[in-house]
């Protein structure tokens, strides 16, 4: 299971870049953000809190490299600073509270869209030029081009406000106590339907488009002809011969899309008042709670890098040729 050093280098560079942005931005800003944050704290601004904020945002008499080392040391111990809005809670605590909901939402939406998008793409490629293809493929491209805000607002208005089919806010019925029982899970599921349906069109469109074009090139391969020559049924050739190999570009695309999916989840959570990272980021940005906004970027970068790494590993499992080529 070897991942080429080049890929690891890219991930390291991306992570360093995110850290550097976080470190330098507040130090470059005219009119230090420190004062506005201390003002934001108001009566809760204890000397300890002020000290912590100053150290983090560079309002201290220290050489810049010393500050950077301290900053890295803090990151290594998962110390992302204190939240200004929710003081004395730390950023890690604030993010941990909401990260689970976002992970739940994103993973559900990815699995849902992957199933639908890949099947649509495979069938469209199989019958390309047919009526199915002529309708589904342009539709997918359009789905990619419509911002998630629009889809979220349309879904909210149609199914939430007008038809009243689904609840318009929160991750579960606030009158329920979280616990491992059927009612609670049912409520969580019910509340996730609209957000998941909002996140999906973009991903279904992307998966469909990628799957279709990669499937079309795979269908020209000799082993597909071989499968047909063996007299296998269309379904067998389509799924066990062609689709399996055509999935590879889809997976690369999935890992790269994750950033956009996080973007979509931010908007979706705000529209549906869903208590995930996006809503936290939104309240933080309204309150100019810089430490939380910065922690958010690091967390989402880490999630995206993790997903990319996972895809690199899976790639080797699904397509052994890749691994051979690398060693």
């Amino acid at each position: 299971m070897r991942i080429p050093l080049r890929r690891l280098g890219v991930y390291l560079a991306a992570f360093l870049f995110a850290i550097l942005v976080n470190f330098t931005l507040p130090r470059l800003m005219p009119g230090s953000p420190v004062d506005s944050m201390i003002a934001q704290l108001g009566p809760r601004a204890t000397p300890a809190a002020i000290e912590a904020i100053k150290a983090r945002f560079g309002a201290v008499e220290q050489p810049i490299w010393q500050q950077f080392l301290d900053y890295l040391k803090g990151l290594a111990t998962f110390d992302l600073g204190v939240s200004v809005k929710y003081y004395p809670q730390t950023v890690t605590e604030v993010l941990a509270r909401s990260a689970g909901w976002t992970a739940f939402l994103v993973v559900t939406a990815v699995v849902f869209s992957l199933c639908i998008g890949v099947s649509l793409g495979a069938v469209a490629a199989w019958r390309r030029g047919g009526r199915f293809d002529a309708f589904v493929s342009p539709f997918s491209v359009v789905m990619i081009a419509v911002p998630p805000v629009i889809i979220a607002l349309a879904t909210l208005f149609t199914f939430g406000v007008t038809l009243r089919w689904f609840p318009v806010g929160y991750a579960y019925d606030p009158s329920l106590d979280p616990g491992i029982n059927f009612t609670f899970f049912g409520s969580v599921f019910w509340h996730a339907i609209m957000p998941v349906l909002t996140l999906s069109p973009y991903m279904i469109g992307e998966f469909q488009t990628t799957m279709r074009s990669s499937m079309i090139s795979v269908l020209g391969e000799d082993y597909v002809t071989m499968g047909r020559a063996k007299g296998l049924s269309d379904t067998a050739v389509m799924f066990s011969y062609a689709a399996r190999n055509a999935m590879l570009p889809v997976m690369t695309n999935l890992a790269l899309m994750l950033g956009a999916v996080f973007g979509g989840s931010i908007v979706t959570e705000i529209v549906f008042n869903y208590p995930g990272l996006g809503l936290t980021l939104f309240t933080a940005s309204v309150a100019r709670d810089y430490p939380v906004i910065q922690g958010q970027l690091l967390l989402m970068t880490m999630a995206t890098l993790g997903a990319n790494l996972l895809v690199d590993i899976l790639y080797g499992v699904v397509d052994p040729r890749v691994q051979e080529g690398r060693t």
């Binding site: 942005v21 931005l25 953000p33 995206t304």
Partner: peptide, 22 residues
């Protein structure tokens, strides 16, 4: 190429929000 790939994997919208909020 390293820069391109690195910027590519950083989630865009959170980065945009960070830059815009500063």
């Amino acid at each position: 190429d390293l820069t391109t790939n690195a910027v590519l994997v950083i989630p865009n919208i959170p980065l945009l929000i960070l830059l815009a909020s500063f």
